[in-house]
Design a protein around this nucleic acid. Sequence first.
DNA 1: CTGAAAGCGCTTACAG
DNA 2: CTGAAAGCGCTTACAG
Lengths: 344, 344
Amino acid sequence: MKKTNPSMLDVARFAGVSIATVSNVINRPEKVSEATAEQVRAAIAELGFVRNDAARSLATGTTSSIGMVLADLDNSLFVDMAHGAQRGVDAVGLRLLLGNAACDLTRQDDYLRLFDEARVGGVLLSPMEDSLAGIERMRSHGRPMVLLNYDQDGIDCCTVLVDNEEVGYLAARHLIETGRKRIGFVAGRDYYQPVHARRVGVQRAVREAGGARLEEIDTGGLDFEDGLAVARALGERPPGQRPDGIVAVTDDIANGIAEGLHTAFVAEVPGDISIVGCEDNRSARSGPVALTAVQLEGVRMGQAAAELLLEEMNAPAGEHRHRTVTVRPGLVVRASTAVAPLGV
Amino acid sequence: MKKTNPSMLDVARFAGVSIATVSNVINRPEKVSEATAEQVRAAIAELGFVRNDAARSLATGTTSSIGMVLADLDNSLFVDMAHGAQRGVDAVGLRLLLGNAACDLTRQDDYLRLFDEARVGGVLLSPMEDSLAGIERMRSHGRPMVLLNYDQDGIDCCTVLVDNEEVGYLAARHLIETGRKRIGFVAGRDYYQPVHARRVGVQRAVREAGGARLEEIDTGGLDFEDGLAVARALGERPPGQRPDGIVAVTDDIANGIAEGLHTAFVAEVPGDISIVGCEDNRSARSGPVALTAVQLEGVRMGQAAAELLLEEMNAPAGEHRHRTVTVRPGLVVRASTAVAPLGV
DNA sequence: CTGAAAGCGCTTACAG
DNA sequence: CTGAAAGCGCTTACAG
């Protein structure tokens, strides 16, 4: 039967004490005699009392939760961020509430509003495209908020970024260091800021290296299928005209290329062509070989974001200055890259 | 600067109306003249007013959120469940708040308590081992709750289950139908209920088929490494003594076996040995070939759970009867299984 | 159509 | 150590 939960008043009556005493045994037990406390605890247990957090929050003006809105839980980067954030807020006894926007801007805004209305202590947001309106709304309400992976001008927030130029740089340099000479950078249009930054990093690595050449290959999108298409196109070129090392701007593209090359017997990976992905996304559709990739360090990003948020939450009014933390990516070498065969 | 958010009273004063009128333009605009409403809306915008949900919830005794506690977001099954629940809950305009237990029973209990105190409309829980205490506590508080993937006796809750016997059955039957004769079932101890059920299903499929034989291979655990170990052990047997079709109780084990067989050149997958996984977990550590697997239909489980929860939430007091919904698994054929070569 | 007032269930000085 | 009472910010009959 759906009973309405007992209140503190019920507990107080049951234990034969005042409501203030009940509150005290819950919140400041040191102010209550052990005998009374025991009676109150018995009453709580007997009645199955659960503190009404709405009332508590209203009375104190505080909450012990912080909200996190994730762009897409199907991408392991965001799951990692949640882990990191969890770690960061656990340390101070706060609870992390997750909302999955699932690539839907309306839903993202709904969660933002929800957390705003719930007066959470702060919010962590990995924004999707075109999130400025929502971000500014939150900002104007004065709620502490830190952004993950959103590199835009004029954002008045603490932010955790990955150095995407470094991502591209590490990927390309790895290929060059393993003897690859004809580097291909495969990406969709530079509409996304990270795509552009990675491109710049690749260009820099090639330029610095001297001996290598760079070909930039444009795909329509960023998915596995786009990678397949690239593999097909490569298959129509004579082997000598193909890159011998490819940086794919997403893991999905990388795996698509590997798959395409493999099933059509176009080339061996990594023998003929090494491939590096740019995300290390465990949720990516997998290809025929384990992918070497630059990892974005989502856990560290989430943790850094949580720390920035706590800083902002704890700063005396007007004292807080926004900061940007940049997390350095790292390379994870797996089977899709290898030292170039001699004499190629 | 951290300003304290304006209240309805502030808005009322600013607009020169009463607080009840402000509440009305927000909640029942039809009761307010357009002119007044306009003024109030202007005041709301000007002041950046955000309704305090704690106060609303306290006054109305309702919430528009439901809580979901997931055992482990690193496993795509739970992410799928969240998607499904989202879908089910969206349909009626409720919000889904996620808590990731991340395989930590204490954290699971914390989230349960949090949702209980927040008086959410109901909770969805994919319990970890040994969750009975927490479950019963919630139950005794009368909060609507439905369980996912928790098949235990004496649980007084609506539940969504996958038919794990069918999982094993489908996996084994697929192998047999593709001409495999020596079926291996690789699993850890039957400590977990699903492991046991899958085993029973495999046994039934083999029994029904007649011509095939079953070998049950025990691993210590359920991970990739356990699969590797199995592959090593298989490598030490003469080829004719090995299974030609393997059902692995987890995708991780399956991929570990495939990897082990592949790197040690023990056998070809699927040529010599077909392998089927039992979860279709996108987050599983991947092996050298795309894994054929039985999929658990997490999305459908989540959606079914949401529907059961809504049913319970909307039932008149005392009218609700708990139900169990069983979601049928399905087979996804990929590259790790194939028709047996002739004459083997 | 609009407002005064009670009440939701807590917390927190303040007396005693 | 314990209790009476005000107050947190809303919603909702009820008058007017």
